[in-house]
Design a protein around this nucleic acid. Structure first.
Length: 595
RNA sequence: GGGGUCGUAGUUCAGUCGGUCCAGAACGCCGGCCUGUCACGCCGGAGGUCGCGGGUUCGAGUCCCGUCGGCCCCGCCA
């Protein structure tokens, strides 16, 4: 009688051809069907299940009578081909069963708070608290396997292109700009703090200076900001940097990476990906990460609409405004209620109002018809790429605002009208981002990308006088309306870097204090370099067809950045605080639970 | 920081206008019966801080205020 617990086969492996073999299976009890005499139990793991038959009166039966769901067993016995009338065609292993001779209980199990293999209707709060149980669910098993496969393919791709995987510190220092840092107090240096990296940005540039001319890392990053379905406080970037690179090289390597990694999980993307300048993306789609899985792009109709006789429209256009529109396919029959909803969406997105025209059966219905006339409305429809049956939605106003509002309508309609095919996957590049934008709250310029992004060489002369018109050598890679990553060619000379800090109004003493080491490094022979950082969790999320990053992270956090399983963040003893020289601000002390 | 939404047996939910609702169902769990089941079946049983605190009321799961937690969104996220 063998005492071994090591399986000879896994639970989805046995077939008719194994009949007669003596095997050992290990796994969880999925279900027990005790018929009083005969007892069946399904033994399984993430690969599948195998039916075990236990005969009455045997030693195996005496043990099997006790077991419950999710006990861990090793079962030794002989594989039997089932009689034709007892074959279960719904199960891969349904042609055989294992006749138990020895049932060993490796582990008993409490009844789980929810059935791990059927979690669809279970409150997420509960699933997160017992995440290790939910991980047994086939959906999460599949997602984790997709994620793991992506990581290994990405490594293989980059290794194959001469990139070296290098780790960079987690305990580093806070940098200005960007998100809030997670801080770690120093015990040795009271009153000083490490910051967890928001990205390995400076380190990867220093690796270029250090002669590692092709670097990558699948790196954890930390940002203490409010969360969303597609944002976690700690997340993973595929961080890539290379010396002597131009945007074309970065794009080529990245496209190859996506083709290989996504291809390995059954998603075909075909480089070269289409490209849009940031200005084109904003004008045509009203966002900097357009979803290309559906049409209804935005068209500028200003010239066709001039001198319409419509008082409001004319005054907007004469004042330098634009008329832009989208043709929503098949939406001509929308009810008054649905049109009102669209109006609300447009106004919430900044539009002053929403004009519309519905085209059906060679006729047009529109509040604009009386002033513009049907012929002009049909010309607008044609210019917007529409046809009979479509609903033309028009926004007049400041050109960019009009596009942003129409972009919001486009996204809303894509969801409500089912414009998105289930297996569509469309990637693209957005290039020529502005270098700066204006922060109303801080009354100063801020970097659109980050302060180490190279200005576009043609726009260097704009930095001091017209900085908001300056473009950068930054690029984003997008998929299905999500930003999948972004990168840039970096500044590699000290003087240009200084001009950027000046434009950002970073005080010289602060620049020196917080990354003097980096500015100094730039003075010791810096190769031109650039790279990209890809949002690995989002790649995995889209590859898995999931709607939330929590679906592709083994142990994710809630939208309030807590871990319901471990209870983090947790309180610490006062002695621990004393050790690191931290005192809680008065009224918070009790609330935080420190004791 | 703001808005929305949800919170009732282990789980998923129902619970009408505030009153036979000392809160029900299904699944799960426990016990009994059952030798070809595979969502086994049949019979029986146990199981509740209606998230928490306060208020209104003769009476609150239900109404009001506050608060905690999950999720979604805006701000924020170079």
């Amino acid at each position: 009688m063998s005492e071994r617990a090591r399986p000879t086969h896994h639970c989805a492996e046995l077939r008719r051809a194994h009949a007669g073999e003596r095997v050992v299976l290990t796994g969880w009890v999925d279900r027990v069907r005790d018929l009083g005499g005969l007892l069946f139990l399904d033994l399984g793991d993430y690969r599948g299940t195998t039916q075990v038959v236990v005969r009455p009166g045997t030693d195996a039966a005496r043990v099997a009578k006790r077991v419950g769901a999710w006990w861990v067993l090793a079962i030794e016995g002989q594989v039997l081909a089932r009689e034709p009338e007892t074959v279960n065609p719904a199960v891969e292993t349904g042609e055989i069963e294992l006749e138990a001779e020895v049932v060993r209980v490796l582990s008993e199990a409490r009844t789980p708070p929810f059935p791990p293999t059927a979690t669809a209707d279970v409150a997420e709060e509960l699933r997160l608290r017992y995440r290790y149980l939910e991980l047994r669910n086939p959906r999460l098993q599949r997602n984790l396997r997709i994620r793991g496969r992506l990581a290994s393919e990405i490594r293989a791709h980059l290794d194959g292109h001469g990139f070296l995987e290098v780790e960079t510190p987690f305990l580093t220092r806070s940098t200005p700009e960007g998100a809030r840092d997670y801080l770690v107090p120093s015990r040795v240096h009271r009153g000083r703090f490490y910051a967890l990296p928001q990205s390995p940005q400076l380190f990867k540039q220093l690796l270029m200076i250090g002669g590692v001319d092709r670097y990558y890392q699948i790196a954890r990053c930390f940002r203490d900001e409010d969360l969303r379905a597609d944002r976690q406080p700690e997340f993973t970037q595929v961080d890539i940097e290379m010396s002597f690179a131009d945007p074309e090289l970065v794009i080529e390597i990245t496209e190859g990476l996506f083709r290989r990694a996504l291809g390995a999980v059954g998603i075909e993307v075909r480089p070269p990906f289409p490209r849009f300048t940031h200005a084109e993306a904003m004008d045509r789609y009203g966002v900097d990460r357009p979803d290309l899985r559906y049409g209804a792009a935005i068209t500028d109709l200003t010239e066709l609409a001039r001198n319409s006789g419509h008082r409001i429209l004319d005054s907007i256009l004469d004042g330098g405004g634009a008329l832009r529109g989208i043709a929503a396919p098949g939406c001509a029959g929308f009810s008054r209620k649905r049109l009102d909803e669209l109006q609300k969406v447009a106004v919430a997105a900044g539009a002053g109002g929403l004009f519309r025209a519905a085209f059906r059966d060679g006729a047009v219905r529109s509040p604009l018809a009386r002033m513009l006339g049907p012929d002009r409305l049909f010309r607008l429809l044609e210019a917007a790429g529409g046809a009979s049956g479509d609903l033309l939605l028009l926004v007049a106003g400041e050109p960019r605002t009009a596009s942003v509002a129409l972009g919001a309508l486009r996204r809303r309609l894509a969801t409500s009208e089912g414009w998105i095919g289930k297996d569509d996957f469309r990637m693209a590049w957005v290039t020529d981002f502005p270098l700066f934008d204006w922060s109303e709250t801080e009354s100063r310029l801020t970097s659109v990308h980050h302060p180490f992004t190279s200005p576009h060489p043609e726009d260097l002369h704009l930095l001091e006088d017209e900085p908001l018109r300056a473009r950068s050598l930054a690029y984003d890679v997008i998929a299905n309306g999500y930003e999948m990553g972004g990168g840039s060619i970096r500044i590699h000379d000290r003087r240009t870097q200084q001009r950027i800090f000046d434009a950002l109004r970073v005080p010289p003493e602060e620049a020196r204090e917080r990354f003097g080491f980096f500015l100094e490094a730039l003075e010791y022979g810096t190769p031109p370099h650039g790279g990209i950082a890809l949002g690995f969790d989002r790649i995995a999320m889209l590859a898995a067809g999931a709607r939330s990053l929590r679906e592709v992270i083994a142990f994710p956090k809630t939208t309030s950045a807590t871990d319901l399983m471990t209870g983090s963040p947790g309180s610490v003893r006062t002695s621990q605080l004393d050790e690191v020289g931290v005192a809680l601000a008065g009224r918070r002390r009790r609330a935080s639970g420190a004791d």
